[in-house]
Computed example of a mutant assay.
Amino acid sequence: MTDIFPQALSIAGSDSGGGAGMQADLKTIQERHVFATTVLVAITAQNTLGVQDAFPLPEKIIDEQFASLAADLQIKACKTGMLADPIRVRAVVRNLKKYDFGPLTVDPVMIAKGGAPLLSNDAIDVVRDELLPLATIVTPNLPEAERLTDMTIETPAAVKQAAVKLQQRGAQNIIIKGGHQEGDTSRDYVLLADGTDFWLSAKRVPTHNTHGTGDTLSACITAELAKGQSLEAAIRLGKAYVDATIRDGIQVGHGHGPLNHWAYRKVEGQNGL
């Protein structure tokens, strides 16, 4: 069989409101011209106002989803999002060790935009100790990086120190996202496996419509890796993609609204990526 279309996998929870989680992954991967597949780990009742309920799926159906994909598709990159609790994290780890789905992007989703927990406290150690060592790249925001490193991160020097600690935990490449920082500019720090590091900056947009930014960044990186892009190119394009989806926003719902996943079409090709 020739000319296989690039395929990527989202391992995550469902957001019924469509702004984050697996739904954001699917929209992003599709926009990047990659075929999106899924392993559903949990279901949430969720909208722009918050998470009203969540239901983790049984291990058996998680295992069967992995096996089904491995039996038929040629997945070239994958990512994790909401993994709920230790049982579900370990089920995902077990299957990622069993099947080769290419480079792994770990988005260590812990708390929804509205404040609801999406990863139990006792699962954080499992993510750190068992999932991170499998990661090609891990993409925590500042609060998540603090939990994974047991650090307080308040300065650029502390951001860099936290990234080194995450590498010591086993993740090869690190992005610590700066969306929770104060100021007019959001700065993400990137530390690559070869020691190369750099900051990615974007002017902050005054909006509440940022639901799903972390999912979207990690999904965009995953899609680009599935197409064979270099990791640095995938990261830079991911940053540009998320910036466009925030800057050219849409109004949906009455709380933290979703991103505009069509926005990057308007600027695609202008940034040379």
Rank of each mutant, 00 (worst) to 15 (best):
L119Y: 02
L119M: 10
S120H: 09
A123T: 11
V126T: 11
D129N: 14
V138A: 10
P140K: 06
N141M: 11
N141C: 14
L142H: 03
L142W: 04
P143H: 01
P143K: 03
E144P: 08
E144M: 15
A145G: 06
E146V: 06
T149N: 02
D150V: 00
D150F: 00
M151W: 01
M151L: 14
T152Q: 03
I153P: 01
A158F: 04
V159D: 02
V159G: 03
K160G: 11
Q161L: 09
Q161E: 14
A162P: 07
V164T: 07
V164A: 07
L166N: 01
L166I: 10
L166K: 01
G170Y: 02
Q172K: 15
Q172W: 08
N173V: 04
I175Y: 05
I176D: 00
G178A: 09
G178P: 03
Q181R: 14
Q181Y: 05
Q181K: 11
E182V: 11
D184K: 08
S186P: 05
R187H: 10
Y189S: 02
Y189V: 03
D194G: 11
D194M: 07
T196K: 13
T196H: 13
D197E: 10
D197Q: 12
W199K: 07
W199L: 15
W199F: 15
L200Q: 02
L200T: 02
S201G: 08
K203F: 10
K203D: 14
V205E: 09
P206L: 06
T207Y: 08
G212E: 03
T213N: 02
G214A: 02
T216Q: 09
C220Q: 05
C220P: 05
I221D: 01
A223V: 07
E224V: 11
E224S: 14
A226W: 05
G228V: 15
L231P: 09
A233F: 08
A234Y: 01
A234M: 00
I235E: 00
L237G: 04
L237P: 02
G238L: 04
V242I: 14
G249A: 10
